[in-house]
């Protein structure tokens, strides 16, 4: 059985082979090869193809735009952790979640902005800007969360309020992307469900890891992890399938992911790191055989996989040609 599993892993990780061919010891080579997977330089897209062929979205992923990817990730998993911790009235989780969302997510958001000093202005156009609304939600989260952590009050009303707010924050990044009609793969209806489960899933993994290191081995929680993972996998498939069938430009994006320039990144990052490996660990722990080490490693892979997923969703978005 073990042998079979190893073989299976070998088989599905065959795209990884090229990493081995590069000198593993050479740090620069690794960086280069990772860069190549996610940002292929041999892109066939030429300056004269701009808006004549499907044109890649770049502003929210290239150069400084990369911070937005991290900012969304941190705010969302922080909220996910907070959300989970709230159910279990786990104060350390609340604090960490609150800090990740606001301090880590917030500061990376600041790094992203062209004019961080004008951050406060983002709150002005609540009437039509999803971004402004998101900022308000985070602001409310900051206040209410602080209140809850400080007072350790878990009354249903507050929990309900914060629960909704957490979900909104979890959705924040993808919701901001989702309203952009110009990019059909973001505008897809399958984006929001995926975003919710991704925030919860990653958050829950931190939560579970915290539980495990704090001694209270949360074997009871594993059932949730199993559930979240399955839903997570299901919604990734739904995202791919639903987006593929939504419009021409969206189809193009999915093609880029599955068989285009980003395919390597997708299969290694999302499928292997984000799905297969966590699934493998989950199977090992199936039936409550949990262990802190495995939970830790699973969390690390889930992080990597989810970061890859978010990166690739952002990166694979294309604009519809104008002529």
């Amino acid at each position: 059985m073990k042998q079979k599993i190893i073989e299976f892993i070998k088989k599905i990780s065959s795209p990884l082979k090229f990493i081995k061919t590069e000198k593993m010891g050479n740090k620069q080579n690794i960086i280069k090869s990772v860069k190549n997977i996610f940002s292929p330089s041999d892109s066939s897209f030429k300056p004269y193809d701009w808006m004549i062929k499907s044109t890649p979205q770049q502003e929210w992923i290239k150069e400084k735009g990369i911070f937005l990817w991290l900012a969304f990730f941190f705010s969302e998993i922080g909220a996910g952790l907070y959300f989970m911790s709230m159910f279990f009235q786990y104060r350390l989780g609340l604090i960490l979640g609150w800090l990740i969302t606001l301090v880590l997510g917030g500061s990376v958001h600041m790094l992203y902005l062209g004019n961080p000093k004008r951050f406060w202005r983002i709150l002005t156009n609540i009437s039509s800007s999803e971004l402004a609304r998101g900022m308000w939600v985070i602001l409310v989260f900051a206040i209410l969360g602080f209140f809850q952590i400080f007072t350790a009050k878990f009354n249903p009303f507050l929990n309900c309020m914060l629960g909704i707010i957490c979900i909104l924050i979890i959705m924040h990044g993808f919701a901001t992307m989702n309203v952009i009609k110009a990019l059909p793969s973001w505008n897809s209806t399958m984006v929001l469900p995926l975003s919710i489960i991704s925030g919860i899933w990653v958050g829950s993994q931190i939560f579970q890891f915290m539980l495990s290191v704090s001694g209270s081995l949360a074997s009871g929680f594993e059932i949730w992890s199993e559930l979240f993972l399955l839903v997570y996998i299901g919604l990734i498939v739904f995202y791919l399938w639903g987006t593929f069938h939504s419009s021409e430009a969206a189809k193009k994006s999915i093609n880029i992911l599955l068989k285009g320039e980003l395919a390597k990144g997708f299969y290694i990052g999302v499928i292997v790191l984000g799905i297969v490996v966590p699934l493998f660990f989950t199977l090992i722990m199936w039936g409550g055989n949990v262990n802190a080490g495995l939970i830790f490693f699973r969390m690390v892979f889930v992080f990597a996989g989810d970061l890859a997923l978010r990166y690739l969703v952002m990166k694979s978005a294309v604009y519809q040609p104008l002529i």
Partner: peptide, 21 residues
Amino acid sequence: KCAGCRACIVSCPYQQRTYYD
């Protein structure tokens, strides 16, 4: 007033905006 969030750039289906960095 611009805080440099570039949402406008991303949202323009005609891609007519540039981030001046």
